[in-house]
Nucleic acid binder design. Structure first.
Length: 217
DNA sequence: TAGGCCATCTGGTCCT
DNA sequence: AGGACCAGATGGCCTA
């Protein structure tokens, strides 16, 4: 498959539509509609009359057709469920793409994988919240402590780790998770992210090791 | 060629 | 009953 086919379908599929026109080309199964069931009525069109010698065969045939009908119904439900599942996964992927857009990255970088995106986002949220916390600690005065994470939308400028900008704030903080980075001060955090960026430019595998290692998450 | 990643299918389970 | 969600299976594509 078919990634190209998937991309094409992604454009055609509308959320909530059970049976898109292009989905039939995706799988060997055809996307049947409920109307299809109306076409196949039991005993329809076989020309047998009840009570005749052929009736027993006819009845057997009818039973057979009922069995076929059940099979068709099951297939139809399966196809519908497949389409729903496909749309669900497409929505999930769209959400992941949105997440990738707000994460610091460089244009020449290869697209983050799903697991990389989630882990990177986790660490990024942690780093941002730690930065805010450090900044609060440095502040002198009776100002009330700022929330750990600013929920106001920030500038839509393209995010980069070096500029510490972010297009939107995460909805939740790195709250219940165990310490996800070895950094213990703001300088450590900066060092961590600078190192991350450096590695982003160097080798993907090194980047993997730095960002994805269990110690960070 | 092995391994990683991905999309899709599928059956089960839970919820409304 | 039907839909959402989940996890396992499968097969294709890509890269080291």
């Amino acid at each position: 498959m078919v990634k190209s086919e998937y991309r094409e379908e992604e454009d055609l599929l509308s959320p909530g539509s059970d049976c898109s026109g292009s989905s039939s080309s995706l799988s060997p199964q055809t996307c049947s509609s409920d109307d299809e069931l109306l076409v196949l009525q039991p005993g329809q069109g076989d020309g047998n009359t009840p009570g005749s010698k052929k009736s027993r065969r006819s009845r057997a045939k009818t039973t057979n057709k009922n069995g076929e009908q059940v099979t068709i119904i099951k297939k139809t439900r399966r196809v519908k469920a497949n389409n729903r599942e496909r749309n669900r996964m497409h929505n999930l992927n769209s959400a992941l793409d949105s997440l990738r857009e707000v994460l610091p990255a460089f244009p020449e970088d290869a697209k983050l994988t799903k697991i990389e995106t989630l882990r990177f986002a986790h660490n990024y949220i942690w780093a941002l919240s730690e930065t805010l916390r450090m900044a609060d600690q440095l502040q002198v005065g009776s100002q009330p402590p700022a929330p750990l994470l600013n929920r106001e939308p920030l500038s839509p400028a393209s995010p980069s780790a070096s500029s510490w900008s972010c297009t939107s704030s995460p909805a939740s903080s790195c709250d219940t998770l165990s310490p996800c980075s070895p950094a213990s001060s703001s300088s450590d955090i900066m060092e961590y992210w600078q190192s991350s960026n450096h590695h982003l430019h160097l080798e993907r595998s090194q980047h993997h090791h730095l960002i994805m290692s269990g110690g960070f998450m």
